[in-house]
Design a protein around this nucleic acid. Structure first.
Lengths: 240, 240
DNA sequence: GTTTTGGATATTGTATATAATATACGGATG
DNA sequence: CATCCGTATATTATATACAATATCCAAAAC
């Protein structure tokens, strides 16, 4: 097994799904914009079949929306949708943490600490915000893994990705939120280390709901400014 | 608009997804069995493309599982998975009901009562159990709709469908569970009518967790008998 | 002037054909 | 006898070709 052997076990459709997901999360593809199968196919040098299958997968993740015979558009979340997203996260994650804590080994704690350190390193080196969401998911999923709840984790990862799309907007601007999140992460891992379930779940809940409120504040101010999250206005720019 | 005009606005792939979903839910397609694209295509008289797209959608719903270059199989849920399914339902549904209750109109209550009556009618006429799950979802979704939580509802419907597959096994045999569910439904709607949030959510939680325990008991006894839910044994019958 | 209607164009949906990958089997080799 | 390897077969994955549907625009009708 040569170490560099990066055999593409994946299918083209799966690779495309990854590429398109990243584009959606980093705003390269704006919310509401139409995804033309032909254009994507020729751009990636493939046929439309794997493009369609990639889009179908992304639809399952809630990142795109399909209308039969009209096509796919990047999904648009209203402020209410975003609020629901974070409320759901809080509900699921608190439950996961509560179940995980009794089974949490020292190895898990150690891994969590190392991810928290990575956050700090990243901040020091002014690294791009690209993988903030990935790191965040790594930390959270590490803490929840001992719960042994695979289905919940799959659902939650979708929610994290959807949330990530909007968090990235905010993180580009609001360094404060970033700092707060990092310090809360450290406190959270510390509480887990002490096996203080009550305080850990309480902090986690606050952590998520505070992120929710800060994000909504950010989005509302920006929307009032001018562009941004469609606040209910049914714009028709999704189809040419 | 002629009343009988049943224009197929749907796509073939969507129709196939519906057909296959029903087959999975009613055990016509056993858990773990392989889904051969060619066979399905020729059976339905279509090409393999819409078959693949239908399977992709079902994968998003958790009803089938794909392995690249090997194919799709009907997903197999372990007892732990089923337990998780119902725990998740309880978590989400209690939250939904709590949010829905303050906004619940008399119309919603009336609709809920009518569905409860339909349950009773169905029982009297010894109707087939086919649409038990549909009715159950109608009742529950009616009660939760005022919460205005579309994303949660989509996720929950998937969970209900997955659960339905196993509940159907049980309902064929255990009339007792059926009776209990119906009486609990009536009590639940009554509590909603009185706007007794505390008792309603408590009953709902119990309702779901009792169903969970009865189902697990049923599955475990049946498994010990002989066939049934694969209790962790990694059988290899999914691919020829 | 507004609405309607027809067809031209763009785009999606499905069928057929080809390529890639996995599985099964049998024979060669030690 | 066990193991390895190559080939035949089955099945999936993708490309290309065709059909169905939607959108747009201009001309006709009122």
């Amino acid at each position: 097994m040569s170490p560099s052997a990066n055999f593409k076990r994946q299918t083209v459709a799966a690779t495309l799904a990854d590429a398109l997901r990243e584009r959606i999360l980093n705003q390269e593809l704006e919310e509401g914009s139409a995804l033309r199968q032909d254009a994507l196919a020729s751009e990636f040098g493939v046929s439309r079949i794997p493009v369609r299958e990639a889009l179908l997968q992304l639809e399952g993740e809630g990142l795109v929306v399909q209308v039969a015979h009209k096509g796919y558009t990047v999904s648009v979340l209203s402020c209410d949708d975003i609020r629901e997203l974070f409320d759901l996260r809080a509900l699921l994650e608190v439950d996961l943490l509560r179940r995980a804590l009794p089974r949490m080994t020292d190895e898990v704690i150690a891994k969590a600490w190392s991810i928290v350190e990575t956050f700090d390193d990243r901040l020091k080196h002014k690294a791009e915000e690209v993988n903030w969401g990935v790191l965040n998911w790594q930390l959270h999923s590490t803490l929840y893994a001992p719960a042994g709840r695979e289905q919940t984790m799959r659902m939650l990862q979708s929610l994290h990705r959807s949330a990530d799309r909007y968090l990235r907007m905010q993180l580009k601007i609001a360094q404060r939120s970033n700092d707060r999140a990092r310090s809360e992460h450290a406190r959270l891992v510390a509480l887990c280390e002490q096996r203080d379930g009550v305080e850990a779940t309480r902090l986690l809940n606050e952590h998520i709901l505070t992120a929710r409120d800060e994000l909504l504040d950010f989005l509302i101010t920006r929307t009032n400014g001018s562009n941004g999250v469609d606040d209910k206005s049914k714009d028709d720019r999704q189809f040419r």
